[in-house]
Amino acid sequence: MASLDIPAGQDVRRLKLPLTHGDIAVMCFAAGYAVVAIALLLATDARQAFAFRHYLVVWPFVFLMLFPFIYGLLVLLKIVHRIPDRRGRIMALRRAVRHHHMQPFATGLLLLCCLMVFQGAFTSLKTALPLWCGGFPHDVAQAEIDRALHFGVDPWRYLTPLGSNRWVHAAIEWNYNQGWFIFCYATLFFVAISARTTAVRTRYLFTYMLTWIVVGNVLAGLFLSAGPVFYEAVTGDSQPFGEQIAFLSSHGDGPHSVAFLQSYLWQLYKTGNAGFGSGISAFPSMHVALATLNALFIAEIFPKWRLPAFAYAVLVLVSSVYLAWHYAIDGYVAIMVTIAIYAAMKPGFGRLAIAERRFRV
């Protein structure tokens, strides 16, 4: 039986870590995916695409230090806000660190460590895709399909007025390049560690991993494209998106800007090296896929937040086109595929079946 010690008042208790069949399955799946990724990279002599080491600092800092600190602070503030007397606050704090809260918290942190390996494997494969596909062969076709679906007009032209106000543009840019990460990974953290989400944790984590694999590896590899922001670089044609890129560049090249991130990703691609979040692939959009996935689970777990969650997914879709990272069809397909994965996974897992079957390791 795995265990670790935590203080509880004046005592030191043994915190058991009973893992569900689902927890073990998540760990094995993440490890198996990493092994397959490593084997593919070695077999194709794409060692330069290995990205595991780039997650060894950022991921533990975010999921083992920053998010737990913020989570604990929010719990403390909630107790202080709701309970006026000191004795009541102490009792509430003791309840908050009881076993039925700390067990899923500790198990969730362990699962998040396994997902660090998974994300490193994903980024490695994504970085290698252009090497295996000989570049980005599908941008022209996808741009033409996009234009045809939107009445012969490139969709970004409908969205340009959003940037007429520099503050609105800055907010869109920050949200897409920074806020999205906070929303998606805070949701991942909460589902992994919270006692309130134990019933759906395994299903969420499997759906999360399958979405990355199907959308970000399989479909991305089959229809590899670089997106509007790199269209001229990969096709030699500046006409469809040159005006859009010039418009975005006019807003500067700060650390949250399209120009800054474009340079970062393109430099890694040209040198064939991996980095944190490296790899270029537009179709389908992982930004939209994860926002949709989280909206689906938020609607299931916290129904009153379903409208803001889905509204955020729409905002991410619109932003992805406005900022030239994606063709509109990248988001449309991502939404459909994510919903399909979510719907396929739900009957097989149920809400409680796996989460309640525990065994000792």
Rank of each mutant, 00 (worst) to 15 (best):
W174M: 07
E144K: 09
D330Y: 00
F105P: 09
W132V: 04
Y33M: 04
I83Q: 09
L73G: 05
A334F: 03
V80W: 14
S250P: 01
A128I: 04
Q48K: 14
A313W: 02
A37M: 02
A353L: 11
M286F: 03
R157A: 07
I354P: 09
G163A: 07
K304M: 12
E356G: 06
L41D: 00
F310A: 10
G88L: 06
F69Q: 06
L248R: 03
L290R: 02
G9N: 08
Y185C: 13
I172A: 04
H54A: 15
T107V: 15
P308G: 11
R86F: 11
R357E: 05
A343G: 10
S319P: 08
A282C: 04
I280N: 08
S194F: 06
A199F: 00
P68E: 09
Y264W: 14
H138K: 00
G227W: 04
K16N: 09
G350Y: 06
E232S: 10
A128Q: 05
E243F: 00
Y185I: 10
F223K: 00
D146Q: 05
F276P: 09
D45V: 00
M65G: 02
H21F: 11
F67P: 09
Y332M: 09
A8D: 02
V229F: 08
R166D: 14
M336A: 15
N273I: 07
A25L: 14
G348K: 15
V200Q: 11
T160R: 14
Q48E: 10
Y231A: 04
V62M: 13
A30R: 03
G279C: 07
L224S: 00
E300L: 15
R47Q: 05
A246C: 02
A259F: 08
G254D: 13
L19V: 03
T107A: 09
L125S: 04
N294Q: 05
I38P: 02
L42T: 04
D330V: 00
Y71K: 06
K346I: 03
Y158H: 08
T20Q: 11
K78P: 02
L205A: 09
A259K: 13
A92D: 14
A141L: 06
T338S: 13
T197V: 09
A43F: 05
S194N: 06
G135P: 01
A355V: 04
Y158D: 06
V62L: 13
V218C: 05
P130G: 01
A106P: 07
V314I: 13
G242T: 04
T197G: 05
I354G: 07
V80L: 14
G72K: 02
I329W: 01
F247A: 00
L268E: 06
